Amino acid sequence: MEVRDEPEEPGWEVDPEDEQGVALVTFVGRQLRARREASGLRAAEFATAMGYGEGLVYKVESGKRIPRPEYLEKADEVLGAGGAVAAMKDDVAEARYPKKVRDLADMEARAVEIGAYVAHGLHGLLQTEGHARALFEARRPAYAQGEVERMTAARTARQSIFDRLPGPTLSFVQEESALRRPIGGTMEWRQQLERLVQIGQLRNVTLQVMPTYREAHPGMDGKIELLKFQDGTAVGRSEGAFNGRPVTDPKQLRILEMRYGIIRAEALAPGETLAFIEQLLGET
């Protein structure tokens, strides 16, 4: 049997500054150890049955390593937990994501409507995995590779919003310059453009491009984002208004909605946008 210790795999380390994540991983580790001991298995025996190295077992049980979903599935089988251990895999997997990303993903998951204008780059929900990784690798000071993988996985996981049923109403306005920058190289750029075409064809998504020949518009100060929820509440944020902080006051939200509405009116129509992206694909 192949032994998989995974000592060098980045992205599954525990962030000591994330108290919530640390508490969850520590709890899961203690549960695994208690179930193992109750089954009469020593760590070495459990590791052999799992097909992983003994060192990884100790790291997981001591809360120093986030167990991958397949690790928990195998542990469930070995320990005869009847699904109780495997059921923790989704919550545990989220522990690898930074808290601010988890909070954002939670809001996006609850939203019934999202509208976003992005002045620089592509919105995180639109980025391919390779595009996101290239952006994180370009940051300075440089991230450790484990942090790059952690942030990339977190951004990619948020895109499950496109699989929701019923899906939320999503609207994106992107600057033309973001679509012309070959982030990650030509092949990754093509994959990104193809991904935009795919997303833009979804019935619950409106994708628009703000052409560079447009003169000044209300989004010149930066990103605008609006999320609306089932209970009628909403939250908005703009880099160019209210000091960039999230706002929920109806008067402030109306200002952001007015700016976003003007931006959408001045951008290319969805059909024109898809034609423009397909034109770019033909030029690559």
Rank of each mutant, 00 (worst) to 15 (best):
T156Q: 08
F172R: 05
D18F: 03
V28R: 06
M220G: 02
G21K: 07
A154C: 03
I66C: 05
R180Y: 02
L193N: 06
E147W: 01
A86K: 15
E8Q: 12
A23F: 07
L135R: 10
L125V: 04
E17G: 02
M258V: 00
V247F: 03
I263N: 07
Y58N: 05
D103Y: 01
E77K: 15
Q198F: 02
I66E: 12
E149A: 08
V78Q: 10
A105W: 02
R36T: 12
I199R: 08
Q192E: 14
G121A: 09
M210D: 03
G124C: 01
L281H: 13
V3Q: 14
Y260V: 01
Q198S: 13
A134C: 02
P270I: 02
H120S: 09
E175H: 08
A87L: 07
D91E: 15
L281N: 14
A34I: 00
I224F: 02
P141H: 06
T26I: 00
R195M: 07
A47M: 04
A86I: 01
L122F: 05
R96E: 03
L281K: 14
T152S: 03
L256Q: 09
Q198L: 06
G167L: 00
G244K: 10
S160D: 14
E175C: 11
F136E: 11
E45G: 14
R264I: 00
K223G: 00
I277Y: 07
K100L: 03
I114T: 11
A119S: 12
L281R: 13
G11L: 02
A75E: 08
E188T: 15
V247L: 04
G184K: 04
M210K: 07
K228W: 10
V197S: 03
G11N: 11
T48I: 00
A44G: 01
G240W: 02
I277R: 13
L165H: 15
A269Q: 14
P211E: 08
E149N: 09
E194V: 01
Q279N: 14
P7R: 13
Q20C: 00
I183T: 15
M258N: 14
A93P: 00
I161A: 08
A157Y: 03
E129F: 01
K99Y: 07
R245Q: 15
Y71P: 04
L72T: 05
I277N: 09
A84H: 11
L196D: 05
Q201H: 13
A265H: 12
T206R: 13
L72K: 06
F46Q: 09
Y117C: 01
E6I: 00
Q201G: 04
K99I: 06
R96L: 10
